[in-house]
Amino acid sequence: MLLSIKNLHASINGKEILKGIDLDVNQGEVHAIMGPNGTGKSTLASVIAGREVFDVTSGEVIYKGRNLLKLAVEERAREGIFLGFQYPVEIPGVSITNFMRTAVNEVRKFKGLDPLGGGAFLKLMEEKKKLVELTSNLANRSVNEGFSGGEKKKNEIFQMAMLEPTLAILDETDSGLDIDALRVVANGVNKLRTKDNAFMVITHYQRLLDYIIPDFVHVLFEGKIVKSGSKELALELEEKGYDWIRKEQRDNGIAG
Protein backbone atom coordinates (compact mmCIF):
# COMPACT_ATOMS: atom_id res chain seq x y z
CA MET A 1 0.00 0.00 0.00
CA LEU A 2 1.27 3.47 -0.85
CA LEU A 3 -0.56 5.55 1.71
CA SER A 4 -2.52 4.49 4.74
CA ILE A 5 -4.24 7.05 6.97
CA LYS A 6 -5.73 5.85 10.24
CA ASN A 7 -7.94 7.86 12.57
CA LEU A 8 -6.16 11.09 11.72
CA HIS A 9 -7.03 14.09 13.87
CA ALA A 10 -5.57 17.51 13.18
CA SER A 11 -6.27 20.97 14.48
CA ILE A 12 -5.20 24.53 14.00
CA ASN A 13 -4.97 26.97 16.89
CA GLY A 14 -6.75 24.46 19.06
CA LYS A 15 -9.65 24.13 16.64
CA GLU A 16 -10.09 20.57 15.44
CA ILE A 17 -10.52 20.33 11.66
CA LEU A 18 -9.81 16.70 10.87
CA LYS A 19 -11.78 14.45 13.16
CA GLY A 20 -10.65 10.92 12.42
CA ILE A 21 -9.80 10.35 8.78
CA ASP A 22 -9.32 6.81 7.47
CA LEU A 23 -8.09 6.39 3.93
CA ASP A 24 -6.02 3.85 2.02
CA VAL A 25 -4.45 4.59 -1.33
CA ASN A 26 -2.73 1.99 -3.49
CA GLN A 27 -0.35 2.55 -6.36
CA GLY A 28 -2.13 2.96 -9.66
CA GLU A 29 -5.29 4.37 -8.06
CA VAL A 30 -7.07 7.67 -8.45
CA HIS A 31 -9.10 8.84 -5.48
CA ALA A 32 -11.49 11.75 -5.79
CA ILE A 33 -12.19 13.68 -2.62
CA MET A 34 -15.34 15.77 -2.57
CA GLY A 35 -17.29 17.58 0.09
CA PRO A 36 -18.79 20.93 1.02
CA ASN A 37 -16.71 24.06 1.55
CA GLY A 38 -14.77 24.24 4.75
CA THR A 39 -14.98 20.58 5.66
CA GLY A 40 -11.23 20.01 5.70
CA LYS A 41 -10.21 18.84 2.22
CA SER A 42 -7.34 21.29 1.88
CA THR A 43 -6.43 20.67 5.49
CA LEU A 44 -6.09 16.97 4.78
CA ALA A 45 -3.86 17.75 1.80
CA SER A 46 -1.72 20.12 3.89
CA VAL A 47 -1.33 17.63 6.69
CA ILE A 48 -0.19 14.94 4.27
CA ALA A 49 2.30 17.40 2.80
CA GLY A 50 3.50 18.29 6.29
CA ARG A 51 2.47 21.90 6.74
CA GLU A 52 3.53 22.83 10.24
CA VAL A 53 0.71 25.17 11.19
CA PHE A 54 -1.50 22.14 11.62
CA ASP A 55 -1.10 20.01 14.72
CA VAL A 56 -1.67 16.32 14.31
CA THR A 57 -3.26 15.40 17.61
CA SER A 58 -3.72 11.67 17.00
CA GLY A 59 -3.76 8.99 14.35
CA GLU A 60 -1.13 7.77 11.93
CA VAL A 61 -0.09 8.18 8.33
CA ILE A 62 2.02 5.46 6.77
CA TYR A 63 3.58 6.21 3.40
CA LYS A 64 5.71 3.64 1.58
CA GLY A 65 5.77 1.71 4.82
CA ARG A 66 7.18 4.61 6.87
CA ASN A 67 5.74 6.97 9.40
CA LEU A 68 5.12 9.99 7.22
CA LEU A 69 4.39 12.30 10.13
CA LYS A 70 8.03 12.14 11.20
CA LEU A 71 9.32 13.57 7.94
CA ALA A 72 9.92 17.24 7.20
CA VAL A 73 7.98 18.90 4.40
CA GLU A 74 10.86 18.74 1.94
CA GLU A 75 11.62 15.11 2.81
CA ARG A 76 8.05 14.16 1.99
CA ALA A 77 8.34 16.05 -1.28
CA ARG A 78 11.58 14.27 -2.16
CA GLU A 79 9.90 10.98 -1.32
CA GLY A 80 7.44 11.72 -4.07
CA ILE A 81 4.56 13.59 -2.46
CA PHE A 82 3.34 16.46 -4.57
CA LEU A 83 0.69 18.99 -3.64
CA GLY A 84 -1.00 20.95 -6.40
CA PHE A 85 -2.04 24.03 -4.46
CA GLN A 86 -5.57 25.39 -4.37
CA TYR A 87 -4.02 28.85 -4.13
CA PRO A 88 -0.52 28.76 -5.67
CA VAL A 89 1.86 31.26 -4.10
CA GLU A 90 3.67 34.08 -5.91
CA ILE A 91 7.44 34.30 -5.59
CA PRO A 92 8.55 37.60 -7.11
CA GLY A 93 11.80 37.69 -9.04
CA VAL A 94 12.21 33.91 -9.18
CA SER A 95 11.72 32.54 -12.67
CA ILE A 96 9.87 29.27 -13.05
CA THR A 97 12.94 27.90 -14.77
CA ASN A 98 15.16 28.69 -11.82
CA PHE A 99 12.55 27.52 -9.34
CA MET A 100 12.04 24.21 -11.07
CA ARG A 101 15.72 23.67 -11.63
CA THR A 102 16.37 24.07 -7.94
CA ALA A 103 13.48 21.76 -7.08
CA VAL A 104 14.35 19.07 -9.62
CA ASN A 105 17.98 19.02 -8.59
CA GLU A 106 17.16 18.83 -4.89
CA VAL A 107 15.04 15.79 -5.59
CA ARG A 108 17.76 14.30 -7.78
CA LYS A 109 20.35 14.89 -5.11
CA PHE A 110 18.14 13.06 -2.64
CA LYS A 111 17.93 10.15 -5.04
CA GLY A 112 21.68 10.12 -5.43
CA LEU A 113 21.56 11.39 -8.99
CA ASP A 114 23.78 14.09 -10.43
CA PRO A 115 22.13 17.46 -10.85
CA LEU A 116 20.83 18.16 -14.33
CA GLY A 117 23.00 20.54 -16.28
CA GLY A 118 21.59 23.59 -18.02
CA GLY A 119 21.05 21.97 -21.40
CA ALA A 120 19.53 18.75 -20.11
CA PHE A 121 17.26 20.69 -17.81
CA LEU A 122 15.97 22.97 -20.53
CA LYS A 123 15.30 19.94 -22.70
CA LEU A 124 13.32 18.28 -19.94
CA MET A 125 11.38 21.46 -19.44
CA GLU A 126 10.48 21.72 -23.11
CA GLU A 127 9.29 18.15 -23.09
CA LYS A 128 7.08 18.61 -20.04
CA LYS A 129 5.76 21.92 -21.26
CA LYS A 130 4.57 20.17 -24.36
CA LEU A 131 2.98 17.44 -22.29
CA VAL A 132 0.85 19.91 -20.37
CA GLU A 133 0.46 22.30 -23.32
CA LEU A 134 2.03 25.17 -21.42
CA THR A 135 2.80 28.20 -23.54
CA SER A 136 6.50 28.82 -23.50
CA ASN A 137 6.58 32.41 -22.29
CA LEU A 138 5.09 31.47 -18.94
CA ALA A 139 8.26 29.67 -17.91
CA ASN A 140 10.33 32.83 -18.13
CA ARG A 141 8.10 34.72 -15.76
CA SER A 142 8.37 34.86 -12.01
CA VAL A 143 6.64 32.00 -10.21
CA ASN A 144 2.89 32.67 -10.32
CA GLU A 145 3.43 36.43 -10.31
CA GLY A 146 0.65 38.11 -12.21
CA PHE A 147 -0.59 34.75 -13.52
CA SER A 148 -4.29 34.39 -14.21
CA GLY A 149 -6.13 31.86 -12.08
CA GLY A 150 -6.06 29.31 -14.88
CA GLU A 151 -2.36 29.90 -15.61
CA LYS A 152 -1.52 29.24 -12.00
CA LYS A 153 -3.30 25.91 -12.11
CA LYS A 154 -1.65 24.88 -15.35
CA ASN A 155 1.67 25.80 -13.83
CA GLU A 156 0.97 23.42 -10.95
CA ILE A 157 0.36 20.59 -13.39
CA PHE A 158 3.54 21.51 -15.23
CA GLN A 159 5.49 21.31 -11.96
CA MET A 160 3.92 17.95 -11.25
CA ALA A 161 5.03 16.72 -14.66
CA MET A 162 8.56 17.92 -13.94
CA LEU A 163 8.77 16.25 -10.55
CA GLU A 164 7.03 12.99 -11.46
CA PRO A 165 5.62 12.33 -8.00
CA THR A 166 4.50 9.00 -6.60
CA LEU A 167 1.54 10.53 -4.81
CA ALA A 168 0.04 13.66 -6.31
CA ILE A 169 -2.62 15.54 -4.40
CA LEU A 170 -4.40 18.02 -6.62
CA ASP A 171 -6.40 20.51 -4.60
CA GLU A 172 -9.15 21.96 -6.78
CA THR A 173 -6.87 22.15 -9.76
CA ASP A 174 -10.01 22.33 -11.88
CA SER A 175 -11.51 25.44 -10.34
CA GLY A 176 -11.09 28.53 -12.40
CA LEU A 177 -10.25 26.62 -15.55
CA ASP A 178 -12.08 27.17 -18.81
CA ILE A 179 -13.30 24.11 -20.72
CA ASP A 180 -10.16 23.85 -22.86
CA ALA A 181 -7.84 24.28 -19.92
CA LEU A 182 -9.78 21.68 -17.99
CA ARG A 183 -9.25 19.20 -20.79
CA VAL A 184 -5.54 20.07 -20.95
CA VAL A 185 -5.07 19.63 -17.22
CA ALA A 186 -6.98 16.36 -17.21
CA ASN A 187 -5.02 15.06 -20.19
CA GLY A 188 -1.83 15.98 -18.40
CA VAL A 189 -2.87 13.94 -15.40
CA ASN A 190 -3.92 11.00 -17.54
CA LYS A 191 -0.61 11.01 -19.39
CA LEU A 192 1.27 10.97 -16.10
CA ARG A 193 -0.80 8.16 -14.65
CA THR A 194 1.10 4.91 -14.31
CA LYS A 195 0.65 1.73 -12.36
CA ASP A 196 3.22 2.95 -9.88
CA ASN A 197 1.81 6.30 -8.86
CA ALA A 198 -1.41 7.48 -7.34
CA PHE A 199 -3.55 10.61 -7.37
CA MET A 200 -5.81 12.25 -4.86
CA VAL A 201 -8.00 14.68 -6.72
CA ILE A 202 -9.89 17.18 -4.62
CA THR A 203 -12.74 18.68 -6.58
CA HIS A 204 -16.21 20.11 -6.32
CA TYR A 205 -17.30 19.13 -9.80
CA GLN A 206 -18.19 15.87 -11.44
CA ARG A 207 -17.07 17.50 -14.69
CA LEU A 208 -13.37 16.87 -13.98
CA LEU A 209 -14.13 13.25 -13.23
CA ASP A 210 -15.47 12.83 -16.75
CA TYR A 211 -11.89 13.27 -17.87
CA ILE A 212 -9.97 11.81 -14.95
CA ILE A 213 -11.82 8.62 -14.14
CA PRO A 214 -11.47 7.93 -10.42
CA ASP A 215 -11.28 4.49 -8.90
CA PHE A 216 -12.86 5.76 -5.70
CA VAL A 217 -14.86 8.77 -4.65
CA HIS A 218 -14.86 9.89 -1.00
CA VAL A 219 -17.03 12.45 0.66
CA LEU A 220 -15.37 14.48 3.36
CA PHE A 221 -17.84 16.02 5.73
CA GLU A 222 -17.02 17.95 8.89
CA GLY A 223 -13.57 16.48 9.16
CA LYS A 224 -14.48 12.86 8.42
CA ILE A 225 -14.81 10.68 5.37
CA VAL A 226 -18.45 9.80 5.64
CA LYS A 227 -19.00 8.02 2.38
CA SER A 228 -16.84 6.22 -0.13
CA GLY A 229 -17.89 4.70 -3.40
CA SER A 230 -17.14 4.28 -7.04
CA LYS A 231 -17.29 7.03 -9.66
CA GLU A 232 -21.08 6.81 -9.64
CA LEU A 233 -21.05 8.47 -6.22
CA ALA A 234 -19.79 11.65 -7.84
CA LEU A 235 -22.71 11.62 -10.25
CA GLU A 236 -25.08 11.15 -7.41
CA LEU A 237 -23.57 14.09 -5.53
CA GLU A 238 -23.74 16.23 -8.64
CA GLU A 239 -27.40 15.47 -8.95
CA LYS A 240 -28.51 15.61 -5.34
CA GLY A 241 -26.03 17.97 -3.64
CA TYR A 242 -24.85 17.35 -0.09
CA ASP A 243 -28.14 17.70 1.74
CA TRP A 244 -28.86 14.01 1.78
CA ILE A 245 -25.43 13.37 3.24
CA ARG A 246 -26.09 15.94 5.96
CA LYS A 247 -29.40 14.26 6.64
CA GLU A 248 -27.81 10.82 6.71
CA GLN A 249 -25.19 12.10 9.12
CA ARG A 250 -27.84 13.57 11.39
CA ASP A 251 -29.80 10.34 11.33
CA ASN A 252 -26.66 8.33 12.03
CA GLY A 253 -25.87 10.71 14.82
CA ILE A 254 -29.27 10.08 16.38
CA ALA A 255 -28.96 6.37 15.68
CA GLY A 256 -25.49 6.30 17.24
Binding site: A49, R51, E52, V53, A72, V73, E74, A77, R78, F82, L83, F85, P88, V89, I91, P92, G93, V94, N98, F99, M100, T102, A103, E106, V107, F110, S142, Q159, L163
Partner: peptide, 30 residues
Protein backbone atom coordinates in the same frame (compact mmCIF):
# COMPACT_ATOMS: atom_id res chain seq x y z
CA UNK B 1 9.26 35.95 3.78
CA UNK B 2 5.82 34.48 4.18
CA UNK B 3 5.20 31.06 5.60
CA UNK B 4 3.17 30.38 2.43
CA UNK B 5 6.19 31.01 0.21
CA UNK B 6 8.43 28.82 2.31
CA UNK B 7 5.93 25.99 2.40
CA UNK B 8 5.45 26.23 -1.34
CA UNK B 9 9.20 25.88 -1.97
CA UNK B 10 9.64 23.15 0.60
CA UNK B 11 6.75 21.21 -0.87
CA UNK B 12 8.77 21.13 -4.07
CA UNK B 13 11.68 19.50 -2.27
CA UNK B 14 13.84 22.43 -1.20
CA UNK B 15 14.98 22.69 2.38
CA UNK B 16 14.30 25.90 4.24
CA UNK B 17 17.73 27.33 3.56
CA UNK B 18 17.74 26.86 -0.16
CA UNK B 19 14.15 28.09 -0.24
CA UNK B 20 15.20 31.28 1.53
CA UNK B 21 18.19 31.59 -0.76
CA UNK B 22 15.90 31.37 -3.74
CA UNK B 23 13.32 33.81 -2.41
CA UNK B 24 16.00 36.30 -1.38
CA UNK B 25 17.68 36.10 -4.75
CA UNK B 26 14.33 36.79 -6.36
CA UNK B 27 13.85 39.72 -4.05
CA UNK B 28 17.25 41.13 -4.99
CA UNK B 29 16.92 40.42 -8.69
CA UNK B 30 16.57 44.03 -9.77
Amino acid sequence: ISEDQLFYCQQRGMDAESAIGLIVNGYAKE
